[in-house]
């Protein structure tokens, strides 16, 4: 993702969260979206993306911001794998109809009835994916009063800010979504019962924060800090935003009181 809109620039951004998680093309569906925060994750999630695409026969997008794309850092390549067909592939893959009836791959559904039936099948598949493929990583969330939520580069920088805040004695944690769709709402919802406030950090004007608010579902205030147009936040900025959230929640009653 690069700074936009339009031609924009080639600076790192997270401006396309809505586009990739909501509408990767026309049609009423979500792709599976994976967001790496390191070069190592970019490698690992790309491998996973192909496996998930085969498993669900569904679009998978690895969405990296411009910083991941232009960064060099040490990484370990996984062992090479022979290209192989998914075990179920015989029922749909186009390999030549030797010894079987032909397979046809098409998404063309001209009739409204067949179109709706096809969409319902896709929705059933999305429900399975939504259950099974939520992914996130956490730092210091066990006892955190405030939880910072950020993905990709913003999440990685936020982790530095969280460490600074912990050194300053603030009970803060980091929740970094790795899957943007399905958004890790189950775990974040559980944390919402314990934490007193949330801070979404993004390199955009506030997109993932909507998903954070849906997961938190009004149980705690959700603040937002974002940089726009290719600007990358410094850990100090996020640290300041964290302290702002602590000030905000200090006046709120503690859950259970």
């Amino acid at each position: 993702m690069r700074g936009g809109p339009g031609l924009g620039n080639i600076q790192p951004s997270q401006s396309d969260y809505f586009q990739v998680t909501r509408s990767a093309g026309h049609g009423d569906y979500h792709p599976i979206v994976l967001a790496p925060a390191t070069v190592q994750e970019a490698i690992d999630l790309t491998t996973l993306a192909f496996d998930l695409a085969d498993k669900y026969r569904h679009v998978v997008i690895v969405v990296a911001d411009g910083l991941i794309g232009q960064m060099m850092e040490p990484a370990t390549l996984p062992p090479m794998r022979d290209p192989h067909l998914h075990p179920d592939a015989a029922s749909w893959a186009l390999t030549g109809a030797e010894g079987r009836t032909p397979n046809v791959v098409t998404s063309l559904c001209l009739g409204a009835e067949t179109g709706e039936r096809h969409n319902k099948e896709i929705q059933a598949r999305l429900r399975v994916i939504r259950e099974a493929e939520q992914r996130a990583t956490e730092v210091f969330t066990e006892d955190a009063e405030v939880i910072v939520v950020g993905y990709g580069t913003a999440g990685r920088i936020a982790e530095s800010a969280v460490h600074q805040a912990r050194e300053a004695g603030l009970k803060v944690g980091l929740f970094r979504p790795i899957a943007l769709w399905p958004f890790p709402e189950r775990r974040l919802g559980a944390l919402a019962g314990r934490a007193r406030g949330f801070l979404a950090v993004e390199m955009n004007a506030g997109q993932m924060v909507d998903d954070v608010r849906l997961a938190v579902n009004g149980r705690a205030p959700v603040a937002f800090y974002g940089r726009l147009g290719g600007a990358v936040p410094m850990p100090e900025e996020i640290y300041d935003a964290i302290t702002g959230v602590f000030e905000q929640v200090a006046s709120l009653p503690v859950a259970g009181d």
């Binding site: 186009l94 390999t95 030549g96 109809a97 030797e98 010894g99 032909p102 397979n103 046809v104 791959v105 098409t106 998404s107 063309l108």
Partner: peptide, 27 residues
């Protein structure tokens, strides 16, 4: 080569070519 052939259909009048060719096909 029927069982070794994979066809690719276009968009247009021939969009349903996959219904008429007896082999693996993709739209």
């Amino acid at each position: 080569i029927r069982t070794q052939t994979i066809g690719v259909a276009p968009v247009g009048c021939a969009v349903f070519a996959y219904n008429y060719f007896n082999m693996d096909f993709i739209e």
